[in-house]
């Protein structure tokens, strides 16, 4: 009588341990969880959208640096990173989101820090090996948020939930970037 009661308890323990193994054993402290899941998109997270495009180069291909006339630098459709959703952390700037996106997607990016230029903001020199002046004297990277071109540095522009950030390569100081290309996703 007493024997099979014990067995039942043992069986229950085994069943529990097996269940535990199946469910998974990710024992993490709150801090660890936060650190490793900070960029996971959940229903509660605030997010922004980011894309990187160099479509204007396709129309100015003759001006492009010979060394960059390859599809790995200038994709056929001019899209280096299609619109992607990223978690917006508290205080994130346009620079922070770009920095994270190029790291996650292993896209080359070079910038000058805020202390290295007179604007007091980070300056994006090159993305995917396309640099300022790579496609003529008026070429370089610019960005717009929700269809507007802010007139100041990307590490000074703080983002809000739902913002749409586009990094765009211009070959004519921004005049070749058609504002109508923007479409709202809100």
């Amino acid at each position: 009588m007493k024997g099979w009661k014990k067995d039942l308890i043992a069986l229950a323990v085994v069943a529990f341990l097996i269940a535990l193994l199946c469910v998974g054993t990710k024992f993490q402290s709150v801090d660890d969880y936060y650190l490793t899941h900070i960029d996971d998109i959940t229903p509660e997270s605030e997010t922004v959208f980011l894309s990187i495009e160099c479509k204007t180069v396709l129309n100015n291909y003759d001006d492009l640096d010979e060394a960059l006339k390859e599809e790995k630098y200038v994709p056929k459709d001019g899209v280096i990173l299609p619109r992607t959703e990223y978690v917006l952390r508290n205080g994130d700037t346009v620079f922070d989101i770009l920095d994270r996106a190029v790291r996650y997607n292993k896209i080359q990016m070079e910038y000058r820090g805020a202390s290295e230029n007179a604007y007091g903001s980070a300056y994006i020199r090159g993305i995917n090996f396309l640099y300022e002046f790579s496609c003529g004297p008026l070429s370089g990277w610019t960005y717009r948020v929700n269809g507007e071109f802010p007139n100041y540095g990307c590490s000074k522009y703080r983002l809000s939930d739902g913002d749409v950030v586009e990094w765009l390569y211009t070959c004519d100081l921004g005049r070749d970037l058609d504002m109508d290309m923007y479409e709202s996703v809100r």
């Binding site: 024997g3 043992a10 085994v14 341990l17 193994l21």
Partner: peptide, 20 residues
């Protein structure tokens, strides 16, 4: 932790079987 849990499960099972 998984290894420990698995070992514990195996141990309890073996002990139970022996007991039975």
């Amino acid at each position: 932790v998984s290894a420990c849990v698995a070992a514990a499960a195996v141990g309890v099972s073996v002990a139970t079987v022996i007991g039975i």
